[in-house]
Design a protein around this nucleic acid. Structure first.
Lengths: 153, 153
DNA sequence: GTAAGGGTTAAACTTTGGTTTAAGTCAAGG
DNA sequence: CCTTGACTTAAACCAAAGTTTAACCCTTAC
């Protein structure tokens, strides 16, 4: 197994397009040494960095946020397992919030869609700015089909 | 309360920018009659349509998908509560899947990030194509920091 | 020697979901 | 009469996350 990897090898192993990896390099998310001929040579730990990026994206982070997180890692050597874990531990709260939001959405859908409150700017379902609201009882406007009652004002 | 609404009134009540409402009209998500002078006049039930659109977006649907869903509704009169509910009932499965995915992500993060498997194309965490996998036990590669072990092959 | 199969770059293009801008119409108020 | 505010349009613009294209360089194989 080679000490360093070409971009093609990285792409193959990471399951990404080479263009994406170049794009990440431009964004500063990964770094590469260069051969005399200008070709990139990646240290093997770039694979874990790329995997981290993918997972972070699924958690809902933008590349910019991911870049900020990665900036705290050493760029000259592979981070330790503990360093990776510290980074990802901050995702927990974010995931909990998003889960609560989706659960609230799911649990209030059947009672809320079709009811008058769906027209309302005040309806939690349409405006779940407050993640905690997802845990509450949800809207209670089961008023039939007349919008005036709830939209008025 | 007016029978029909101007775009400004709709924007105000729906909590959207007028530009967004025009955009939705171009996309065929809402319709409007026109005055002699060319100004849009919206029936009041557009408010519920807009609320539906917002909720559908939060569920993760694209405007195109939302448009397809809305295409099944009558455009000449307000849909009934039952019609709205039928549309949204199909979201349930999608929400369940996404919730399971996020829960899997959350529950496997601490054990998986930092471990060797994160470099792997095979790692569930980095590739949760299979939503059901989120319910399973997750990766079991708690191998320390040597990537060769898991990346090789 | 020439073709194939990597690699390089900058720049243009793509998609989604809108917003912004420029230029114009219209009605009401002072 | 003139300004103000709300409306109209088409077209340009934006951000994110990449992909595609065009032109070029190397190395290896035949």
């Amino acid at each position: 197994m080679a000490e360093v990897l070409t971009i093609g090898e990285v792409a193959e192993r990471a399951g990404l397009a080479a263009s994406a990896i170049r794009f990440y390099e431009r964004r500063g998310l990964v770094t590469a040494a260069r051969e005399a001929n200008g070709q990139r040579r990646f240290r093997r730990d770039v694979l874990r960095r790329l995997a981290f990026i993918r997972v972070a994206q699924r958690v809902g982070l933008s590349l910019e946020e991911i870049g900020e997180a990665l900036a705290g890692l050493p760029s000259d050597r592979a981070p330790t397992a503990a360093q990776w874990q510290r980074l990802s531990s901050s995702w927990r709260g974010r995931l909990d919030e998003r889960i609560a939001l989706l659960e609230g959405l799911r649990d209030n859908l059947s009672s809320c869609i079709g009811c008058g409150c769906l027209s309302l700017r005040r309806c939690w379902l349409a405006n779940p700015d407050d993640a905690a609201a997802g845990l509450g009882p949800g809207p209670r406007f089961l008023l039939g089909d007349r919008e005036e009652d709830v939209v008025a004002g």
